[in-house]
């Protein structure tokens, strides 16, 4: 049995609206509907979708904060909403937009408090703390009150806080939101190491597709509350119909290059762009081009994941009413 099992999950919210002076109308909004997926231990899964697609609602149901309207969830063999407190020991949660740390306390005190709340073995706690502080370079900030930390520092603090009790699963809701490039990079590196060394299962929602590309072996795309795609990263490129591009610099200007398996998408003087499917090998195409033309330079571009997602969303938009 998988670590996380979600079956035909649904959650509706009743939204009341004022209609006229006294009358109120209410209608149901399906934030999540008929959502099914399962995640095995040790996977790193990206959970993506446009705003309001139901990402946060799903995370809240997986952690037991929200009770599902229909369907079933099992996380580490537990029903999250019924055994929330018990499950809390086995999961870590990072909300990118708010902190779980105590605003007025220095990081050190926040971490100490967490040790007491989770009743983590003190030796284990210290061991973890040392390791994480080292990896995330937080040693110098231990005595700074949380409210004085920068967003990136606070986020690192939050991640340490979520991991001190050795959770099997780490949920990250927009972990890199608002961070600069360097902080993002460091965070991704840390998460990857965490998964490799400890086998922690990661589920992250993000708008930053670089996160996905850097971290996830699998992507679940959700739109209008239901899973549109559940594929490996490579599969995502395929689904999106994305293509790799070979940029060819010819010695002289020439008419568009004509070879099998690739088509010219753009010509700019002696430079031509050739697109070909992701799963095809670049070698025969390069060879064919080099054999037929005088080539000054070649470069290969991997598909842009943003384009891929955009294609998928557009497709999903057509599918749903």
């Amino acid at each position: 049995m998988s670590l996380i099992e979600v079956r035909e999950l649904g959650r509706t919210f009743t939204v009341r609206k004022k209609a006229g002076r006294l009358r109120r109308t209410s209608h149901d909004v399906e934030a999540v509907r008929d959502l099914s997926f399962s995640i095995d231990a040790g996977e790193m899964v990206g959970y993506i979708g446009p705003n309001g697609a139901g990402k946060s609602t799903t995370i809240k149901m997986l952690t037991g904060i929200l009770v599902p309207s229909s369907g079933s969830i099992s996380v580490a063999g537990l029903d999250p909403s019924r055994r929330r407190t018990e499950l809390a020991r086995r999961i870590g949660v990072v909300f990118g937009q708010r902190t779980t740390l105590w605003w007025d306390l220095p990081l050190r005190d926040s971490f100490d408090l967490l040790q007491k709340i989770y009743r983590t073995d003190p030796a284990r706690h210290r061991e973890n703390l040392d390791e994480f502080l080292e990896l995330l370079d937080l040693h110098d900030l231990l005595d700074t009150p949380v409210r004085q930390l920068s967003l990136g520092q606070r986020m690192r603090g939050d991640i340490v806080a979520a991991l001190l009790h050795d959770p099997e699963i780490l949920y990250l809701d927009e972990p890199t939101i608002g961070l600069d490039v360097i902080s993002k990079g460091r965070l991704r590196e840390f998460l990857r190491a965490l998964n490799e060394r400890r086998g922690t299962t990661l589920l992250l929602t993000t708008h930053d597709l670089q996160d996905i590309e850097a971290l996830c072996d699998r992507v679940i795309v959700i739109d209008h509350g239901t899973a549109v795609f559940d594929v490996s990263l490579a599969g995502l490129h395929q689904r999106g119909g994305s293509r790799r591009t070979l940029v060819v610099d010819l010695v002289d200007e020439a008419p568009p290059i004509a070879i099998d398996g690739a088509e010219v998408v753009r010509v700019e003087g002696p430079r031509q762009w050739l697109a070909f499917p992701t799963e095809a090998s670049a070698a025969p195409i390069v060879a064919a081009v080099a054999a037929a033309y005088d080539v000054a330079d070649l470069s290969l571009r991997e598909p842009d994941i943003e384009d891929v997602i955009r294609t998928i969303y557009a497709g999903a938009g057509r599918m749903s009413p």
Binding site: K60, T63, G64, I65, R84, T85, V93, I117
Partner: peptide, 15 residues
């Protein structure tokens, strides 16, 4: 409203 309750709900202490 502040979302503090969400944080409390993922801790292993009665809410």
């Amino acid at each position: 409203r502040m979302g503090d309750l969400d944080t409390m709900m993922v801790r292993p202490v009665p809410l």
